[in-house]
């Protein structure tokens, strides 16, 4: 494991912790897209089908369990928690799941390394993760006042993707047999989706202003 990969995983972990902490302590999910969170729960479920069959390392298994557990807890909080659910703005979070899920599924069936259930599901999870942030980005654009924690959450998620790209570049040079072109393309697409957000995030940071995305 190289430093970029570890930093990427840690940023991913922090993003989830920031979000859980926000929801748990403030008892509010204002500005958070349930659609995106449900898509992440689906991403982790379909990606980690091998969690009990293929052992890679303790680190790997523990992280998988954390991502599965946290994504389902977040969805539970927004849908079921009697206080948190009141802060969910359903009318603003209108992105349709199937606009993303169906094309990703079709793509995974046709473009994969091997046509087996587990492999297609794994590939589907990569495609879906690449676009799962879209409902959240749309919601951010509609929200006039983005609170700091929500901004940091999205920033950390974007940073995680950027660090993974550095990790792949590093691995490409240090591990000659490391070729994962589906992962790379999906990962680059995913990172590009954050470009616009990053631009406004840094602008607001530089000018010491509140983050606001143009409509």
């Amino acid at each position: 494991m190289n430093i970029f990969r570890l930093a990427g995983d840690m940023t991913h972990l922090f993003s989830v912790l920031v979000l859980l902490l926000k929801i748990h302590t403030i008892k509010s999910c204002a500005g958070i897209s349930l659609k995106t969170q449900e898509l992440y729960a689906l991403v982790f479920t379909t990606r980690y089908l091998d969690i009990f069959t293929d052992f890679i390392s303790l680190y790997n298994t523990v992280m998988k369990l954390i991502f599965l557990g946290s994504s389902f807890s977040i969805v539970w909080y927004i849908r079921r928690h009697k206080i948190v659910r009141r802060s969910y703005d359903k009318d603003q979070d209108t992105f349709r799941h199937y606009f993303l899920v169906i094309p990703c599924l079709v793509l995974a069936v046709f473009i994969n390394h091997k046509f087996t259930f587990k492999e297609v599901m794994w590939t589907f999870s990569l495609y879906l993760e690449a676009v799962a942030i879209l409902p959240q980005l749309v919601l951010l654009q509609r929200t006039r006042n983005i609170d700091n924690l929500t901004g940091q959450y999205v920033f950390l998620l974007g940073a995680y993707r950027a660090l993974y790209i550095l990790n792949w570049i590093y691995r490409h040079f240090t591990e000659p047999h490391y070729v994962h072109w589906i992962t790379w393309i999906a990962g680059v697409v995913q990172t590009l989706l954050y470009a616009d957000f990053f631009y406004y995030y840094f602008q607001s940071w530089k000018n010491n202003e509140k983050l606001q995305l143009p409509a």
Binding site: D9, D50, D54, I56, S57, M63, H113, K114
Partner: peptide, 10 residues
């Protein structure tokens, strides 16, 4: 098998 790509990333 050798066909399987290693999935050591999260």
């Amino acid at each position: 098998s050798n066909d399987d790509i290693e999935k050591d990333e999260l």
